[in-house]
Design a protein around this nucleic acid. Sequence first.
DNA 1: ATAATACTTAAGTACCTACTTAAGTATTGG
DNA 2: CCAATACTTAAGTAGGTACTTAAGTATTAT
Lengths: 116, 116
Amino acid sequence: MQAVALDRTFHALSDPTRRAMVQRLARGPASVSELAKPLAISLPAVMQHLAVLETSGIVRTEKVGRVRTCSVEPKMLTLAERWIAERRESWERKLDRLADYLDATASENDNDGESK
Amino acid sequence: MQAVALDRTFHALSDPTRRAMVQRLARGPASVSELAKPLAISLPAVMQHLAVLETSGIVRTEKVGRVRTCSVEPKMLTLAERWIAERRESWERKLDRLADYLDATASENDNDGESK
DNA sequence: ATAATACTTAAGTACCTACTTAAGTATTGG
DNA sequence: CCAATACTTAAGTAGGTACTTAAGTATTAT
């Protein structure tokens, strides 16, 4: 099962600083210090957030020379997105069937009719 | 901004027990004890998870007599789903533009041609 | 070679989470 | 009425999270 992957992905996205980092990276790759620049926290704190994002699989990083370049890895985003979408759609189908049933019941009452 | 709502929603979804509860509720409303039955934790623990889901807005509950009935509230699911989808799509558009650019560069090298 | 840059590691602190057991409060069936 | 049911509240505990500052280690520019 992929439960642990979802745990990590949703946990990673539950922090506003990490979401800001993902938002920045959605525009394209960035170094750690570029990522840190708009944030009002220390660089080690940024590193810790980055580790959470990387462990979850949302972000991939590669170090060349002294610069670590970070980029989005969309697979995990897609996994999380689909988990939500599937439950939401299941719920909405349920609602639709209920509406259909209520409509059917209402017209039965309208003409007091039964098939057969 | 809706940052706090996203914090709470993603946090709520980051726990496997809470996701199991959402999954059950996606099939239709349930009482607290129905929700608790398949889970290997105490009822107070289930209540605490339920409080997290309710505070996040993912689940709505209503008490009638001694039974509290829980159901999915899809608005917050949609909000979270769209947050992910927008960043993923932004990243994918970026990749597409890069691919286009590389294609264009490649054909320039093929025929060494420039328009005009 | 020296110094600036770009991270990285370590260690400590204040809160937050998920869980437990024990003891409650309403409702409802016999 | 009395007891079973369905939750609810309270309090405690073990472990996790998000930060901090201080002190590193590589790389690159002068």
